[in-house]
């Protein structure tokens, strides 16, 4: 089966510093794949390479078998890639509804509509309201985003990515910074993501990784250090040494 997302010998250098060193990943469609590693292992760099924020020094990136190494970030989105950010990247003075109509409208190709009002796009509005409902944001959808509690903003962060109906979803520490009482809400949403979406989770929180992932890749110092099922990785003494030991 063609992998949903694949990297071949991905390398990124900054000057003399190699931050991503020969990383080859192959993630099957529908997988719940976690990417873990200690601080400075190069997780964020990989996300940036995958989404096109950075260009790799060498190596290829493929989505559904199609080479997207040279594609611009927005072209990758059109190919089915979506991401959330570790630090919320929201439109502070728009309402969640507007942000969501924007995201849905872009996917439907309505974004270049020049003359028809937003409200006339009932398809986008309906779908946006639907997703907001699903993400428990319907109550606050008409309030400015900047005033929302952090947990709600975090949900919107994920909802915006889901609104794109991605094939591959990159979640960058989805629960980071969420207060304890709102945490279960975020985790439930992450757990209930549609099963046909391939999810790559970058996470620090081991409980979340072990409860969510079916496969884990361990990064250390820019290299792919180990890869395997949750059981294999949690038993691997070397992983424990570099990662768990380090985190403890």
């Amino acid at each position: 089966m063609t992998p949903a997302l694949e990297t071949r010998a991905l390398v990124k250098r900054f000057g003399g510093l190699v931050v991503t060193n020969d990383v080859s990943l192959s993630i099957r469609p529908g997988a719940r794949h976690a990417l873990i590693g200690p601080n400075g292992a190069g997780k964020t760099t990989i996300i940036n390479l995958l989404t096109g924020a950075l260009t790799p020094s060498s190596g290829r990136i493929l989505i559904g078998g199609e080479d997207i190494t040279e594609a611009s970030p927005f072209a990758r989105v059109k190919k089915g890639m979506a991401r959330t950010f570790q630090i919320n990247q929201l439109f502070d003075d728009l309402t969640p509804l507007e942000s969501m109509v924007l995201a849905v409208g872009e996917r439907l190709g309505h974004g270049t509509r020049f003359w028809r009002s937003l409200a006339s796009d009932s398809q986008a509005a309906a779908e946006a309201a639907d997703i907001l409902e699903r993400f428990r944001l319907a109550d606050v959808m008409c309030l400015p985003t900047r005033g929302l509690p952090y947990g709600k903003q975090r949900l919107l962060e994920i909802a915006l990515a889901i609104a794109l109906k991605p094939k591959v979803l990159l979640l960058d520490e989805p629960a980071a910074g969420v207060p304890e009482e709102d945490r279960h809400e975020v985790l439930a949403i992450v757990r209930d993501l549609p099963s046909d979406v391939t999810v790559v989770l970058i996470e620090h929180d081991m409980d979340l990784v072990f409860s969510f992932a079916d496969r884990i890749s361990v990064l250390a110092a820019g290299r792919l250090f180990a890869e395997g099922s949750v059981a294999e990785i949690s038993r691997d003494p070397e992983v424990k040494a570099i990662y768990l030991g380090d985190a403890a």
């Binding site: 989404t51 927005f74 072209a75 059109k78 979506a82 929201l90 502070d92 995201a103």
Partner: peptide, 15 residues
């Protein structure tokens, strides 16, 4: 959206 947050706008597929 582009003005407020160009990174996110790009990740919504807006060129």
């Amino acid at each position: 959206a582009i003005k407020r947050n160009s990174r996110r706008a790009a990740m919504l597929g807006i060129s």
